[in-house]
């Protein structure tokens, strides 16, 4: 009888032990689930006070970007302007925007691709801080060739934001994916996650960096620096909410494409004049 009671006691104790141990374990996990307070989800959409940007209300805009590859001449003024405007590292391994060249030679099925960061093109420009496409195909028979400017796609479902462990990178209400450089821990998970190679690690500041569509310019009514300097109008930027804006007209009047649609990221940089080889 006594033994029996002891056993029962044991069982109860065991269960309570199991319970408390499980609870302790669960507590740690639960803490993460608890993390975003209930207000977080609603605050973003409700009539919360917009960020303190003088003369700008982010709820009134939805920015979009267009690239007309049929117009691009590969002069790389955009790359230079971007590096300058945003204090980007001045070498051949850090770009917020870059330009690719696709060349089909006669008799070849796939395109030859290079960017201005290719050693041949760096040799032609003279240094990594200057940008120029070398006329490397002048002796070959070129069947078709074109330039494709690249930049961050500011995706609707950004893979980089999804994987950021801290919330240092996020998508603003007006559709721009930005990085909070004072909060980034520099794990570079987002660099890995971006299918477009748009992100890079800034070794001076030890944080990740990428294109912001020049958020400091567009919130002041200016164009992004790359759009500002493009001499042929190959880069188009504007507010998708405004039906008369250049980008709305561009999307409306052209059959636009996006890059890597299958990634599910839903990019917001719209392309015209690219073909199957563009990656």
């Amino acid at each position: 009888m006594e033994e029996n009671e002891l056993e029962q006691q044991d069982r109860r104790d065991f269960l309570s032990c199991l319970g408390s141990a499980l609870a302790c374990g669960a507590a740690a996990v639960a803490a993460s689930a608890l993390a975003p307070p209930a207000t977080a989800a609603t605050a973003a959409t409700a009539g919360a006070k917009p960020p303190a940007i003088p003369g700008y209300d982010w709820s009134k805009h939805r920015w979009g970007y267009g690239v007309d590859a049929t117009k691009c001449i590969g002069c790389l003024r955009c790359v230079e302007a971007c590096k300058k405007e945003n204090n980007v590292l001045g070498d051949a391994h850090h770009f917020r925007t870059w330009v690719e060249r696709y060349v089909y030679l006669e008799g070849e099925e796939t395109a030859r691709i290079d960017s201005h960061a290719d050693p041949v093109n760096i040799a032609a420009s003279g240094s990594e801080g200057e940008y120029r496409f070398a006329d490397r195909y002048k002796d070959a028979k070129v069947e078709k060739a074109f330039f494709v400017p690249k930049l961050c796609n500011h995706c609707t479902h950004p893979a980089c934001v999804q994987v950021c462990p801290t919330g240092a990178t996020y998508k603003t209400e007006d559709g721009v994916v930005v990085i909070d450089h004072t909060y980034c821990i520099g794990c570079q998970y987002c660099v890995q996650a971006c299918p477009y190679g748009a992100r890079y690690f800034d070794e001076r500041r030890n944080v990740t960096d990428k294109c912001t569509w020049c958020y400091h310019r567009i919130t002041k009514g200016l164009q992004p620096a790359c759009v500002e300097v493009c001499p042929v109008g190959a880069r188009i930027f504007g507010d998708l909410n405004d039906k008369q804006s250049p980008i709305s007209q561009f999307v409306k009047n052209n059959q636009v494409q996006v890059l890597r649609r299958e990634s599910g990221n839903a990019p917001n940089v719209f392309y015209v004049g690219i073909d199957k080889e563009v990656i």
């Binding site: 977080a40 982010w58 919330g167 990178t169």
Partner: peptide, 11 residues
């Protein structure tokens, strides 16, 4: 958490 999972002031 002011606007979402990030520092609202950073905008």
């Amino acid at each position: 958490y002011e606007y979402g999972h990030y520092r609202g002031k950073s905008v």
